[in-house]
Structure formats: structure tokens, C-alpha cells
Design a protein around this nucleic acid. Structure first.
Length: 272
DNA sequence: TTGTGTTTTATTGCCTCC
DNA sequence: GGAGGCAATAAAACACAA
């Protein structure tokens, strides 16, 4: 038994089709192909599987017992893979042609394609999962940054408020003592500004905030607090100009791009 | 060598399409 | 109703650690 090569039958000239035994019962087993083998063919063809009573070439099989599954040779798999890359569905003509070329039964070629499609689908699911996970991780990381930034701003606000309160007390003391170092109007203005920012931060309201020109510039193209570099929806926003996407656009976009690339690479994939 | 996990080949049954 | 696709599954072949 040749386990390494394990591919005793790949010799198109010597084995035109090699499966007489395709199992029994079932509505999809033969699908008309069994009838393709005439009695005449049986006498010429090397069986791939051979049921106990069937003819098979002892020389060909050596000591290999019949009814054993055998793997396709590297060359056969290579050709099948190439064909699969071109087109993952198999039209009858191509199936027949491939089968001839490889010295296999058309049914074997069809089965190989079917299994290959299943494998591809599994891989694709894994890839999709990876893409989704990467997106999630990225969004999560952005979110964490924003939460941190928010905390930082809040604590800055607290210290600023404390400073202002101290200043107001000092001003009052100075006014009382007759030395007006800060004009009352300006002092009032500072107080209002700080309070406004405080309100804004604590309530999350963005519409009416009045922030000093010197304050950290936040991206506020409408209603977002995200600094430009960390706006998670930057990619999403661009494609939902009409705002009708309900946040699904990003993933659709990511997948569309990914599948487009893969579709191009493989030349046949149709994302449904 | 052997036990075990993974991959590949093949079957079965159901579904859809023409 | 037949042909072909797919999901689930069986089983042989293979890989590999102990």
C-alpha cells in the first residue's frame, strides 16, 4: 500500500474512469452517470471502487483491497484547484472534460467541487469573523480612548472651577478693600464661561456650549465630540450622506470591499 | 506502535430550478 | 420529474504526539 503517494490510479491512459462502485441507494448517487458506463466500458475501465463481485485489475491494485477510498494525486488536485479558481461551479461539459483529463469519473469531479465549495465556505466564514472582530476591537479601542478623554476633561473642569471660585473670592475681597484688580464685568464673564463648559460636560449637551477660543478644539462638525483622528464613524459617515444607513453601512462596506477583492482574486465569487 | 485529531472522499436526503 | 446544489454525515487516509 502506497501511503505516501497513495495515488495509484492517476494514469489517464491506463485508467479511463475508475469508479464502478458508487454506492447504493440514494437519489443522487448515480444521477444518470452509472448508465454512462456500458458493459463494454466495464471491461476496459479500471474501477476506482470495486464491489466484491466486480471486475478489477489485480495488477493495478497490487495487494490493495477493493472498496478502499483513495486520495487524488497531487497533479489531479492541482488541476482541480486551478479549475476551481477559474470557476467554482461545474458545467457538464467542463466536468466531462476534467474527468477525462484526470482519469476520473465525472461524479468524482463533481463531488470534489462540492466538497471544495464547502471548504471554501468554511474558510470564508472564518475570514468574515476575523474582519468583524478586527472592526469590533478597533471600535472598542476608540470608545475606550473617548471615555478616558472625557474623564480627563471632567477633572480639568473640576480644577478650573476650583480656581475660578478662588479667584472670585479674591476679587470680592479686593473690591471690598477698594482695589479693583479685575473689572467686575470680566470676572462675571469668566464665571459664566466656566459654568457653561461645566454644564456641557456634565449633561452631554452640545448645542449651547460657549467655550473659550483657547479651549481644546473638538471636532464638532454637527454634533460629535470625537476628535477627528478618533471618529469611529469617519469611514461610515462618508457613505451615508443621506443618513439612511442606520449604522449598518460600515460593515456592509467592509464586507463589500473584502469580497470584491477576493472575488477579483478568485474570479468567480458572487457575494449574496 | 498506537491512540487521537484532522483532512479528504464519498453518500444520503432534502431543496430548488427549469 | 430529473438534474444539480447543499448540509450533514460516514469512513478511509493521513499526521502527529506520546
Amino acid at each position: 500500500m502506497d501511503h505516501q503517494s497513495g495515488h495509484l490510479f492517476f494514469d489517464p491512459s491506463a485508467c479511463h474512469g475508475n469508479m464502478l462502485f458508487l454506492g447504493s441507494g440514494g437519489d443522487s448517487v448515480f444521477r444518470g452517470q452509472r448508465t454512462m458506463l456500458s458493459m463494454e466500458d466495464h471491461s476496459k475501465r479500471r474501477p476506482f471502487f470495486s464491489s466484491p463481485g466486480d471486475f478489477y485489475d489485480e495488477e493495478y491494485y497490487d495487494e490493495q483491497s477493493p472498496e478502499k477510498k483513495r486520495r487524488l494525486s497531487a497533479e489531479q488536485v492541482h488541476l482541480l484547484e486551478k479549475s476551481f479558481e477559474t470557476e467554482n461551479k461545474l458545467e457538464p461539459e467542463r466536468k466531462t472534460e476534467l474527468a477525462k483529463k484526470l482519469g476520473l469519473q465525472p461524479r468524482q469531479v463533481a463531488v470534489w467541487f462540492q466538497n471544495r465549495r464547502a471548504r471554501w465556505k468554511t474558510k470564508q466564514l472564518e475570514r468574515d469573523y476575523d474582519v468583524l472582530k478586527a472592526s469590533y476591537d478597533s471600535l472598542r479601542s476608540n470608545y475606550d480612548s473617548v471615555v478616558k478623554e472625557n474623564e480627563k476633561l471632567k477633572s480639568e473642569m473640576v480644577s478650573l472651577t476650583e480656581k475660578v471660585d478662588t479667584k472670585e473670592t479674591t476679587t470680592e475681597v479686593v473690591q471690598i478693600s477698594g482695589e479693583n484688580l479685575v473689572p467686575p464685568a470680566e470676572a462675571a464673564s469668566q464665571s459664566v464661561n466656566v459654568k457653561a463648559v461645566e454644564d456641557r460636560l456634565s449633561t452631554g449637551s452640545v448645542g449651547s456650549a460657549v467655550v473659550d477660543d483657547d479651549s481644546p478644539q473638538l471636532v464638532d462638525s454637527g454634533d460629535s465630540y470625537f476628535p477627528a483622528a478618533m471618529v469611529p464613524g469617519e469611514a461610515m459617515q462618508s457613505e451615508e450622506d443621506d443618513g439612511s444607513d442606520n449604522g449598518q453601512g460600515y460593515y456592509t462596506h467592509v464586507f463589500a470591499e473584502q469580497h470584491e477583492e477576493e472575488g477579483e482574486a478568485l474570479g468567480w465569487w458572487v457575494w449574496s
